[in-house]
Design a protein around this nucleic acid. Structure first.
Lengths: 224, 224
DNA sequence: TGATCTATTTGACTAATATCATAGCAAGAA
DNA sequence: TTCTTGCTATGATATTAGTCAAATAGATCA
């Protein structure tokens, strides 16, 4: 994944994208390695070249929620940079990842010279804000079961594929605990919801291999 | 409240701010009047000149959550405009308000001619995104009591004032039901939390008049 | 003033999810 | 193999907040 192929950085011309890629420092992260911590000052942004990164928020009692997953092409840390705030969440490799750091002076220079880049980040922030507001609304409005169904649907979109018989296949990128952290519930509750979905025959879970036998019924579970 | 005094529009020069204000169509809204509906196409943005506006999201069962309050100087509708999405929430006057509509062609032209305006909206979106993520985290992590304490603290910051004896005074801009909608809980639960806080002596509620007798204890309630 | 309306509070009960304890199970290490 | 170790699942119980119904309190209006 090159920066030029990303939603945001594609605004740069050849010269600038080359300059930015040259200024970028790419590193390998193993599963579990931390990219930045909540509370850290923002030194720049991180472009995910390969792998999968989780963005987490923790509280005092040790509860942690998983706010989002970043895939190749995504840029991390632009939000606190734009807001002029310290990091309000930490980022950690969920899978082995290659991540390129671009210091904030370079980012600011590029945005200054290419207004379209700033607008792309505005668009990204605006979309994410809509999603975050939706997520809040769902968390207080829907049951754990419905939210898990929604998570499955989203995961299917991002990580799954259809099969010839109309069912959907999916390899979950996350453990049960991490899915629980995405929903803001306990892992036991996720286990119970999975057990329940199995009972209805809508889905089949084998470790992280999921078959969605009846996508329409799963949609119904999400809505209710 | 003039546009030039707002966090975002202050980026415009005198000529452009005058042009924008001339393009703006200002209207009066009574309490309860709707400014736009969830699902509507975005026709432009709304600058709140006076009053108080609530941004709401409803679901199929009629549950509604109050996502945020917009005060004079705030601009509504820029998020879906920037994201190129329809409105994902509705807006409604909580108090009688004066609101100026600016059509999206004008907004886009101004942003095109003044990159700083776009960056101001980026900063705004980035801050709101941080808040929204925090709100999700709180909603799944903290008790109703703690979240209500936090709401009180935020309300105090925005609408309250200190008194000479060290206690804090506040006139709530919202009904109990609307506070419940901000927290994503039922009005009965808000009543019970208020009753409980009264019992501890930390706060005193008389209709919408609130006295926070012991701000430190209120902070403790928030944290736990 | 009394009548009515709505918002709020209170109480009894129920439902949903967390908590805690324990057990199973797969993958890797000795 | 056998022993860990960590993740997942299950059962029993506790806690929290929701639901429903009724009472109360203000506000408005005739």
């Amino acid at each position: 994944m090159h920066m030029i192929d990303s939603e945001e950085w594609c605004a740069l011309n050849d010269v600038d994208v080359t300059a930015t890629e040259e200024a970028a420092i790419c590193s390998n992260y193993e599963t579990g390695d931390v990219i930045f911590y909540e509370g850290d000052d923002v030194k720049g942004v991180y472009f995910v070249k390969a792998g999968l990164v989780g963005v987490r928020k923790a509280d005092l009692e040790g509860n942690s929620t998983l706010l989002k997953l970043a895939e190749p092409g995504d840029t991390l840390g632009y939000r606190p940079l734009a807001a002029d705030q310290p990091h309000r969440a930490s980022a950690e490799a969920v899978n082995p990842s290659i991540i390129c750091f671009i210091d904030k002076a370079t980012v600011r220079q590029m945005i200054g010279e290419n207004p379209a880049l700033g607008l792309n980040f505005l668009k990204r922030a605006a979309k994410e804000l809509g999603d975050a507001e939706e997520k809040f609304h769902e968390s207080v409005t829907l049951s754990t079961r419905a939210r898990f169904a929604h998570l499955l649907i989203v995961m299917q979109d991002r990580f799954g594929h259809a099969t010839e018989d109309g069912s959907l296949q999916l390899t979950l990128p996350l453990s049960r605990s991490d899915m629980a952290a995405m929903l803001g519930v306990r892992p036991e509750s996720v286990s119970r919801v999975i057990h329940e979905l199995e009972g209805t025959g809508i889905t089949h879970f084998a470790e992280r291999e999921v078959t969605i036998r009846d996508p329409n019924s799963l949609m119904d579970v999400f809505i209710k």
